[in-house]
C-alpha cells in the first residue's frame, strides 16, 4: 500500500491538531456529549439513585408537558422574549454612546472609565441583587431613589401619581442599563480603536461636523461590533439566572425532574437560536466590514 506523501505545509498543518487536541477532548466530553445527553433526557423519564441514573423512553411527553400542560412555561418564555426585545436596542445604543464619549480626550477620562467598568467586576451573581435592592428599594429607611425626587421640585401628593411611577420606572431602567452595559462599552471601546484616525482628519478637513462624523464614519465602522454586542446582550439577558424561564428550569432540576427540565432547556435553546439567527439576518445585512 502506498501512503500519499504530505507536503511540508500539510505536515506543519497537521501540528495544528496537536495544539487543539486538548480542547478537542474537552469539547467532546464537556460540551458535545452533555448536550447530546440532554437531548436524550428530554425524551425520557430520568430517575437518579445512588448507583447512577436510569432513563426510560417516554417520547414527546416532556415537551407536551412544557408546551401545553404547564401553565407557566409558555407565558414566561414570551415574557422574557418581549422584555429582551425592549431592552436590547436601548442597551446597545447606550453603550455605544458611552463608549464614544469615553473615547474622547478629556480630563478625568481614566477615572470615568474605571467607574463605568466597575459593573463588569461586580455585576453578576448575588451581589447585584442586593446592590440593586440598595439602588431602588424603599424598605429600609426610605432614603432610596424616591428621596431624590421627594426632595426636589415635586410636591408630596405627586409622589404616588402616575408621573412619579413613570419616573421611577425610568430611574430603575437607567440603573439596570448602567449596571448591565459594562462589557458592551468595553467591546465598543475596543472597536473604536480599530477605526483609523486618518478618516476623521480627512472628514474634518472636508468640513464635516462631529455629528456627521459619527453617523458617516463611526456608526457604520462599528457595525460589526454592534452585531457582537446585540448577540452578547441577547445571550446575557436569556441566560441571566434571574430570568423567569431559567428559574423554571432550575426549579424542575431541583425537584429531580431531569426529563422535564431538559425538555424545557431544549425548547428554550431553540428559541434563543432562532432569535439570534433572525437578528443576525436582519443586522448582518447592514454590517460593514473595513477592508484591510
Amino acid at each position: 500500500m502506498k501512503i500519499k506523501k504530505l507536503t511540508l505545509t500539510q505536515k506543519s498543518n497537521m501540528v495544528g491538531y496537536g495544539f487543539i487536541s486538548i480542547w478537542l477532548i474537552g469539547i467532546i466530553f464537556f460540551f458535545v456529549i452533555p448536550v447530546f445527553h440532554t437531548l436524550i433526557y428530554s425524551f425520557s423519564q430520568v430517575t437518579v439513585s445512588k448507583t447512577g441514573m436510569k432513563t426510560a423512553w417516554v417520547g414527546l411527553q416532556n415537551f407536551n408537558k412544557a408546551l401545553f400542560v404547564d401553565p407557566n412555561f409558555v407565558r414566561n418564555l414570551t415574557n422574557s422574549i418581549v422584555s429582551m426585545i425592549g431592552q436590547v436596542p436601548v442597551l446597545v445604543l447606550f453603550s455605544m454612546f458611552i463608549a464614544v464619549v469615553l473615547n474622547q480626550k478629556f480630563r478625568g477620562r481614566g477615572a470615568a472609565r474605571v467607574l463605568f467598568f466597575l459593573p463588569v467586576i461586580i455585576a453578576s451573581g448575588i451581589s447585584i441583587q442586593i446592590l440593586s435592592a440598595n439602588g431602588m428599594s424603599t424598605d429600609v429607611s426610605g432614603k432610596e431613589t424616591m428621596f431624590m425626587f421627594k426632595a426636589s421640585i415635586f410636591p408630596e401628593e405627586m409622589s404616588t401619581s402616575s408621573v412619579m411611577m413613570y419616573l421611577q420606572t425610568l430611574v430603575n431602567q437607567i440603573f439596570n442599563i448602567c449596571w448591565k452595559s459594562g462589557i458592551q462599552i468595553l467591546l465598543f471601546l475596543s472597536g473604536l480603536q480599530t477605526i483609523p484616525q486618518s478618516y476623521y482628519e480627512v472628514s474634518s478637513l472636508e468640513g464635516a461636523t462631529a455629528w456627521e462624523e459619527f453617523w458617516k464614519i463611526t456608526f457604520p465602522l462599528l457595525s460589526p461590533f454592534s452585531l457582537l454586542c446585540v448577540v452578547y446582550t441577547i445571550i446575557d439577558s436569556f441566560t441571566d439566572s434571574a430570568n423567569p424561564v431559567m428559574t423554571l428550569i432550575k426549579t424542575a432540576f431541583d425537584g429531580f425532574d431531569y426529563g422535564f427540565s431538559s425538555a424545557m432547556s431544549w425548547i428554550y435553546f431553540i428559541v434563543i437560536l432562532i432569535v439570534i439567527l433572525l437578528v443576525q439576518k436582519i443586522v448582518f445585512r447592514n454590517v460593514i466590514y473595513m477592508e484591510d
Binding site: 452533555p34 448536550v35 440532554t38 433526557y41 432550575k250 434563543i272
Partner: peptide
C-alpha cells in the same frame, strides 16, 4: 449555548 441548557447532564 447557555451552560444552563446542558448543566443537568
Amino acid at each position: 449555548v447557555p451552560p444552563q441548557t446542558y448543566i443537568i447532564s
